[in-house]
Amino acid sequence: MKILDGGVGRELERRGAPFRQPEWSALALWEAPEIVKQVHIDFIQAGAEVITTNNYAVVPFHIGQERFEQDARQLISTAVQQAKLAVQDTQKNTLIAGCIPPLFGSYRADLFDQNHVSEIALPIIETLSPDVDLWLAETQSCLQEVEMVHALVPKDHRLYWVSFTLQDNINLAQSHLRSGETLAEAAVLLKKLNIDAVLFNCCQPEVILQAIHEIKQLVPHIQIGAYANAFAPQDETATANDGLDDVRADLDPNMYLNFAKQWQHAGASLIGGCCGISPAHIKQLSSHLKE
């Protein structure tokens, strides 16, 4: 069982770090990297055993093509350095996961362009590679993108985790990615690529339990994880960059722990939080799920 961190971007916003559309969490890498480090530290002190580099928004979708070409490597280097400094300052054996974000925007499988995968993914991978302990492809909803990016990552000893974002519809008979692709289709790819762990993130906690049960049947021996967001359900029109979504008032650390206990009981062994999940939530997970 490993405890992951929570949502760095919304934690930056909550603390008054520079945070606006369209740059989101990338803006703090320019203007307030010390706050990025402090957020990492607070998650580690809350019990996170894995933290993820804060380069999720360092893609053209958020910072623009010109700025990406000019500044991406420096921004990503800043992100990984702040994670390393946080681990050093806390003197913990915390693992650093290298964030591979959705290259064309969260939930936007419709914007996937196979002709531009390498030019976006390689600066991310090459800059992170010397300093990360494992890879985490986050908020994935396009299976072709997952496969193409995986082919670009160094094939060495490091673990490779893929985290899918699910449709926020508790009435579906089967879980679906935001693209509409099924977990059965995802399972074929996970086996083909020999992925080390499959996780579910950036969707409401109510839809994750069903997905865990499904993937456990489809890929019995894979490690499973979950880190939900604290947003209200995002339907098929959601783009994750139209505005600052409200955080649910009901999803306090105790309620989130109740969901996490269900995930753990169903077989998840990598549990943390996504957007809106704070160090207080992670502390609650660490205190109870590690027992």
Rank of each mutant, 00 (worst) to 15 (best):
R108D: 05
V59T: 15
D113E: 11
Q88I: 08
D110H: 05
D71L: 08
Q88C: 04
A72I: 01
P123M: 01
D133K: 01
L128F: 03
Q114I: 07
H116P: 03
A79E: 01
D110S: 06
A97M: 07
E66N: 11
E119T: 14
Q65S: 12
P123W: 05
P123F: 01
G98W: 02
S106C: 08
S77A: 15
F104P: 04
F112Q: 03
A121P: 07
K84Q: 15
F61R: 02
Q82E: 15
Q70T: 14
I120R: 04
S118A: 15
Q70P: 06
L95K: 14
A121K: 03
I63F: 12
E126I: 08
Q88D: 13
V117N: 01
F112R: 06
Q70H: 13
G105P: 09
P123D: 08
D133Q: 06
R108F: 08
V80G: 00
A83G: 01
T90E: 07
Q88L: 12
I96K: 00
T127N: 02
L85G: 04
I76Y: 06
Y107V: 11
R67A: 13
G105E: 07
H62C: 14
L75Y: 02
D113A: 10
A86G: 13
V80S: 03
I63R: 02
F68I: 13
V132L: 00
E126T: 15
A83Q: 01
I96T: 12
A121N: 13
I96G: 04
T78K: 10
Q114Y: 06
Q74E: 13
E119F: 00
T127R: 02
S118R: 15
T90V: 02
L75D: 08
L85I: 00
K92W: 01
I100T: 02
D89Y: 00
Q70M: 13
L111F: 04
V132T: 12
H62D: 08
Q82N: 09
T78H: 06
V59M: 05
E119G: 04
F104K: 09
Q91G: 02
F68T: 11
E66M: 09
F61W: 12
V87A: 05
Q65F: 08
Q91E: 05
L95E: 09
Q82H: 10
P60K: 01
A86H: 00
D131V: 10
R73H: 03
T94R: 10
L122A: 08
L103E: 07
P60I: 03
A86W: 00
L122E: 14
Q91M: 07
D71V: 05
